[in-house]
Amino acid sequence: MARKSKEFQRLFHEETHAKKSPRREPTPQSIRKKELAAYDQFKEKLENDEQNKGITFVEKPKGMRKMSMVLEQFVAPFLDDEDSYEEREFFFELAVLAWNCAVFPESGREKLMESFFSGLANPLDPESMEATQDLRVFVEELIERKLDVFPKDNRIIQDFQLTQHEAGFHIAVSYVIAR
């Protein structure tokens, strides 16, 4: 058999690889499957946490909207499609802080905010102090939004998990109901 030239081999390689189908777009089913897997992982993490021993987890309380959907609606006006995973995760941390502060009586809010912001600012760096103050003002705006838009929702968010997939982001939330 005659030996094929390198040029022929290159052309053959390009031709056979060009015929492969392009990468498929994710289907709603594949996205949902990934979201459920992320949720199961989050749930397992919570159930295996020592602090949660003896706690019964309820996934869909009757008469209540999913907290993940409520939290997404709460932050929707502030999110941008161009936000990176890290930016979104930090924003959700601020949103959870604001949400929980709004559930507490006004007298307890400052203590909760102080515990969050105390480790962020470097007192020797004026820019750091200014950025932290800007974040504090933003959290106060989010508190007002929570009180205006979701005044009767008294759930306290304990934890959340943000995951990213081909079609966007998914958030899972664990909470307790304040009495």
Rank of each mutant, 00 (worst) to 15 (best):
R32S: 15
K34Q: 15
S21A: 11
P22N: 08
K20Y: 09
K43G: 01
T27C: 03
N48M: 04
K34C: 08
T27M: 04
T27E: 05
K19N: 09
S21R: 14
L46Y: 03
E44V: 03
K45R: 15
E47Q: 13
A18T: 10
K33H: 12
E35K: 05
R23S: 13
R32V: 04
L36T: 04
R24M: 11
F42T: 00
P28W: 10
A37I: 03
E35G: 03
K19T: 10
E47H: 01
Q41T: 13
A38F: 04
D40L: 09
N48R: 14
N48A: 13
K34I: 12
K34H: 10
N48K: 15
F42P: 00
Q41P: 00
Q29T: 13
E25P: 03
R23A: 15
E25D: 14
R32F: 07
A38H: 06
P22K: 14
K45W: 01
E25Y: 14
H13M: 09
P22Q: 07
R32D: 14
H17C: 07
D49M: 04
K45D: 03
P26I: 02
T16W: 05
H13I: 03
K19D: 10
E35P: 00
P26T: 07
H13A: 10
D40F: 06
F42D: 02
K33C: 09
E14V: 09
T27K: 03
E47K: 09
P28N: 10
E47I: 01
K45Y: 05
N48E: 11
Q41G: 07
L46A: 07
Y39Q: 05
E15G: 04
H13W: 08
K45G: 00
E14C: 09
K19Q: 13
P22Y: 07
F42H: 06
K34Y: 10
S21L: 15
P28I: 05
P26H: 05
S21M: 09
T16C: 05
A37W: 02
A18S: 15
Y39S: 02
A37M: 07
F42K: 00
P28E: 10
L46P: 01
P22L: 11
K20M: 09
E25S: 15
A18I: 02
K19H: 12
E44I: 04
D40G: 02
E15D: 11
I31A: 08
K19R: 14
K45E: 06
D49S: 04
A18D: 14
E15V: 09
P22F: 09
F42G: 01
Y39C: 04
R32C: 04
T27L: 05
Q29C: 04
P26L: 03
S30G: 01
E25I: 12
R32G: 03
Y39L: 12
D49Y: 00
E14M: 13
K33T: 09
S30D: 14
H17A: 04
K43D: 05
K45M: 06
E35V: 06
A18C: 08
Q41R: 14
S21G: 01
E15H: 13
A37F: 03
P26Q: 03
T16Q: 10
T27F: 02
F42R: 00
S21Y: 07
A18H: 14
R23C: 06
A38D: 15
T27Y: 02
A18P: 01
L36E: 12
R32L: 15
E15L: 12
P28A: 08
E15N: 11
K33Y: 12
F42N: 02
K20V: 07
H13R: 11
I31K: 00
P28M: 08
T16F: 10
